[in-house]
Design a protein around this nucleic acid. Structure first.
Length: 660
RNA sequence: GCGCCCGUAGCUCAGUUGGAUAGAGCGUCUGCCUUCUAAGCAGAGGGUCGCCAGUUCGAGUCUGGCCGGGCGCGCCA
C-alpha cells in the first residue's frame, strides 16, 4: 500500500514540476525522521532551486500550493529548509489495508515478463550439507518466494555436479581405500546417515591424497575419466553415491521448507551433448582459442584482459596470464565450460533440451523433477522454455568465474542474456573461534585471535545442517514443553519445529549478503531480540487475544469511519497510525528487496513490524477496553497486523505457530 | 603485483538512488508479570561513521589518496 501512495506522489510531483517549471527530475522520496512530519518527504526542491536559481523554500511553497489533490494523500506541506512532506489520508489507508483484495503490484518498469530462474543450493553430492550450504539455500529460497509474491513465474533449479572431482574423491574412498564392492556401497547408501558417513570418508580421502600427490593424480584421473565416459565400477558407485546424497540433501532442505522444481544434473550436460553444442558455438564464434605455445599449450582458452597493450603483454611474464582454460589439454572440460553450456540452455540459446523424469525419492509430499538421458516424461513442466532473467546463488569467492561465464555469453553475441545473468553473491559462513573450539577443532594461536575460522568440507570441519537443526529443535522443544505441558506431543513437536526453523532462517537472513556470518551456537540458538521467534511471538500474541476474545464472547461490531478518524487524530493517534503504516508497507520492503536483490530487507521489515506491534500491545489492553467501538478498532488492527506479518514471515519461509 | 569486498556504539550488524537530530539487537545498569503469553515492554548509558583531502546547498553514503582486515587470480569447483 505504501508503495502505491509513494508512486502516486512521485508521479504527481514529476508531472507538476515538468508542467510548471519545464524541468524533468527524478523525484527522490524518503521517510521523514518523525511520524509527526508525515509519511513521505521529498528534497526535490533543493535540486530544483539549483536549476532555477530560486530559494528552495519558496519553490516548495509554490509546489505545495499548486499541487492538486492526490488520491490517498491528505495534504502536502513545506518543512525545514524546503522539504515537501506528504501526509497520508489515515482513514483511507486503513480502508485499503483492511480490504482483502490488496495485493502487491510492482511498478510497470519492474515487471519482468516471462520466466525467472533461481538456481540455488547446488551442493556437491558427496557429503552432508553444512551451515554454509544452508545460507545459500535459504537466500535462494527466500528470493524465489519474494519474486513469486511479486507476480513472477519462478522456476527453482538445483545444479547437481554428479560427475565432478568431489564425487570422484568419495568414489576413490569407497573403491580404493575401503575396497568395497559396488553392491556394498549400494547397501551403505540406504543408511539414513549415509551423508554423514561420506562426510568423514571425504575428509579421509583428502588426507590420503595429501600423503602422495602422484598417487592422487593417478587415481583421480582414472576415476574422473571413467565417470565422464560412463563406464566401469567407478560410474556405478558415483551414481549410487550422488543419487543417495542428493536425496538426503533434499530431505535436509525440506526440513527448512525448501523445495526445488528441477534438479539439473551435470551427467546430462555431458551425455546429452550440451557441452559439445556449446563447444561448437564457442569455437566458431572465435570466443575460445586453442593455445599452441606456452604453459597452456593444448588447452582451449578464453582470452581475458584484452585491454592490456601488446607491450604490456610482452613484458608480462607467464605468471600473470589471466586467460581462462575452458578445455584442458587432456580434452576434458572445466566447470566454467559446463556452466556456460548450462547458462546458454537456461536462456534457450543452446538449441537443445534435456529429457525429464520425476526424481524417484523426493521428500514426503513433494514432486521434484530431474534431468535424465532416458525416456522423457511428457507430464514434465516446460523447463526448457527460455528464461528472461536468471539468478545464480553462489558464494562471492566464485565472482571471477561467474564473470567469465557471463563474458562467454556476451562474446557469443548474447549481451542481453549476459546482462540478465545475475550472480546473487553472498559471503561465507565461518565459525567463531569459540564455536570451532567447542567442535573439537584445535586452533592455532593465530586463528584464536581472528574473529572467525573458515569451515572446510575437505577437512570435514564444519557444522552440519541436520545437527544444527536437531540441536535447535531440542532447545525449542524443551522450551515449549515447559511452557505448554498440556499441549499434545505431536503439537509440541510441530511447534518446536517451526520455532527452530524460524530461528535459523531468520538468523541467516538478517545479515545482508555481503556480511560474513561468524556462526556461534549461542547466537543461532537465541530466541530473543532480533530473531525469528520474536516475530513469531507477535503473531502468537495476536492469536491469543483472538482466542480469549472468542471465549469471552466478544461482540463482533463493525468499526465505523468516525471511530477510525477520531482515533487516528486522538492522543494515541500517531502510535496507532505508526502500526497501521508499518502493516501497510510490505510492498515497499518487497520492492526494495527485489531491486537490490537483498532478502535481508524483508527480514528487517518483519522485525520492525513485530516490534511496532509489541509496542502497541503493551500500550493498549485490548480486551479490557470499555469503549466498544475502540475495542473493535483495536481488534481489527491486530487482525490486519496478523495477516501482514504472517504473509511477510511466509516470504521468509517461516511459519507462525498458534501457541509458543 | 592485479581485481573484488569490508572498516559505523563494548560486541554483532542495519543505514535503498547523497537529504532533516546516525539506528537495531546483544551485553551492562534501573524499573515493569493479581490485567490479552515477560520468547515481552519502558528507561539509562554508550559514536572524531578507519584517517586525510575533494565534489556538493547538503557526505556514513560519491571521487582520489593513505592505513587496517578479508577473499579471488589452479589444466579444482
Amino acid at each position: 500500500m505504501y508503495l502505491t501512495l509513494q508512486n502516486r506522489l512521485r508521479e504527481a510531483l514529476a508531472r507538476h514540476i515538468q508542467e510548471h517549471y519545464a524541468v524533468t527530475l527524478d523525484i527522490v522520496l524518503d521517510r521523514p525522521p518523525k511520524i509527526e512530519m508525515g509519511e513521505a518527504a521529498s528534497p526535490v526542491c533543493f535540486e530544483l532551486a539549483k536549476r532555477l536559481k530560486k530559494a528552495p523554500r519558496v519553490l516548495a511553497q509554490e509546489i505545495a500550493n499548486g499541487l492538486g489533490k492526490i488520491d490517498g494523500i491528505a495534504r502536502v506541506e513545506v518543512a525545514g529548509a524546503g522539504y515537501l512532506n506528504a501526509y497520508f489520508d489515515r482513514a483511507a489507508f486503513w480502508a485499503s489495508v483492511s480490504s482483502p483484495g490488496t495485493r502487491y503490484s510492482p511498478l510497470p518498469s519492474q515487471k519482468i515478463s516471462g520466466k525467472v530462474i533461481v538456481e540455488h543450493t547446488s551442493i556437491n553430492p558427496n557429503k552432508a550439507a553444512h551451515i554454509g550450504h544452508v545460507r545459500n539455500a535459504v537466500l535462494g529460497d527466500t528470493m524465489a518466494r519474494v519474486l513469486r509474491h511479486a507476480g513472477h513465474a519462478v522456476q527453482v533449479q538445483n545444479y547437481i555436479d554428479n560427475t565432478g572431482v568431489q564425487v570422484a574423491d568419495v568414489v576413490i574412498g569407497f573403491l580404493d581405500m575401503e575396497r568395497l564392492s559396488p553392491v556394498s556401497v549400494k547397501m551403505a547408501a540406504m543408511e539414513p546417515r549415509f551423508d554423514y558417513y561420506c562426510w568423514d570418508l571425504y575428509a579421509k580421502a583428502t588426507h590420503f591424497f595429501e600423503e602422495d600427490k602422484a598417487r592422487a593424480a593417478e587415481l583421480r584421473g582414472r576415476t574422473l575419466k571413467a565417470i565422464e565416459e560412463d563406464r566401469g565400477e567407478e560410474v556405478e558407485v558415483a551414481q549410487v553415491v550422488a543419487d543417495a546424497i542428493v536425496s538426503l540433501h533434499l530431505k535436509t532442505m525440506a526440513r527448512l521448507g525448501i523445495a526445488y522444481d528441477l534438479l539439473a544434473r551435470e551427467s546430462e550436460i555431458l551425455h546429452l551433448k550440451f557441452w559439445d553444442a556449446a563447444f561448437e558455438k564457442l569455437k566458431s564464434a572465435g570466443v575460445i582459442q586453442l593455445a599452441s605455445t606456452g604453459k597452456m599449450a593444448g588447452c582451449w582458452i578464453m582470452p581475458w584482459k584484452e585491454e592490456t597493450t601488446s607491450a604490456e603483454a610482452a613484458s608480462n611474464d607467464e605468471e600473470n596470464i589471466q586467460d581462462k582454460i575452458i578445455v584442458r589439454s587432456n580434452g576434458t572440460v572445466t566447470y566454467v565450460g559446463k556452466d556456460i553450456a548450462y547458462q546458454l540452455w537456461k536462456f534457450g540459446l543452446l538449441g537443445k533440451d534435456f529429457n525429464y523424469r520425476k526424481w524417484p525419492t523426493p521428500p514426503e509430499g513433494e514432486t521434484v523433477w530431474a534431468t535424465t538421458t532416458s525416456q522423457n516424461d511428457p507430464a514434465a513442466p516446460r523447463f526448457g522454455e527460455p528464461a528472461t532473467i536468471v539468478f545464480n546463488v553462489i558464494d562471492t569467492r566464485q565472482s571471477y568465474l561467474q564473470d567469465v561465464v557471463a563474458e562467454g555469453l556476451r562474446r557469443l553475441g548474447h549481451a542481453q542474456a549476459a546482462e540478465n545473468s545475475i550472480h546473487l553473491s553472498y559471503e561465507i559462513v565461518a565459525l567463531t573461534p569459540r564455536c570451532a573450539a567447542e567442535m573439537g577443532y584445535e586452533l592455532t594461536p593465530e586463528e584464536a585471535r581472528k574473529p572467525y575460522v573458515e569451515v572446510s568440507g575437505r577437512k570435514g570441519f564444519g557444522v552440519k545442517a541436520d545437527d544444527l537443526l536437531d540441536k535447535l529443535e531440542a532447545a525449542t522443544l524443551a522450551e515449549v514443553h515447559e511452557r505448554h505441558a498440556d499441549m499434545g506431543d505431536s503439537f509440541q513437536k510441530r511447534t518446536a519445529h517451526s520455532i527452530a526453523v524460524g530461528a535459523l532462517r531468520f538468523f541467516l537472513l538478517k545479515f545482508t549478503r555481503n556480511a560474513i556470518i561468524a556462526f556461534d551456537f549461542k547466537d543461532a540458538l537465541s530466541f530473543e531480540g532480533e530473531t525469528g521467534p520474536y516475530c513469531q511471538y507477535a503473531v502468537v500474541r495476536i492469536r491469543g487475544i483472538r482466542r480469549k476474545g472468542v471465549e469471552g464472547g466478544a461482540t463482533n461490531v463493525a468499526v465505523t469511519q468516525e471511530t477510525v478518524a477520531t482515533l487516528f487524530s486522538g492522543p494515541d493517534g500517531n502510535g496507532l497510525w505508526e502500526l497501521l503504516l508499518s502493516a501497510g508497507s510490505l510492498d515497499l520492503a518487497v520492492n526494495a528487496a527485489i531491486g537490490a536483490q537483498e532478502p535481508a530487507f524483508v527480514a528487517k521489515y518483519a522485525f520492525q513490524l513485530a516490534q511496532t506491534f509489541n509496542n502497541f500491545y503493551h500500550k493498549h489492553h485490548i480486551l479490557n477496553e470499555p469503549d466498544e467501538q475502540k475495542r473493535a478498532f483495536l481488534l481489527r488492527m491486530t487482525e490486519l497486523v496478523e495477516a501482514r506479518l504472517v504473509e511477510t514471515l511466509s516470504l521468509l519461509g517461516i511459519e507462525a505457530p498458534e501457541k509458543m
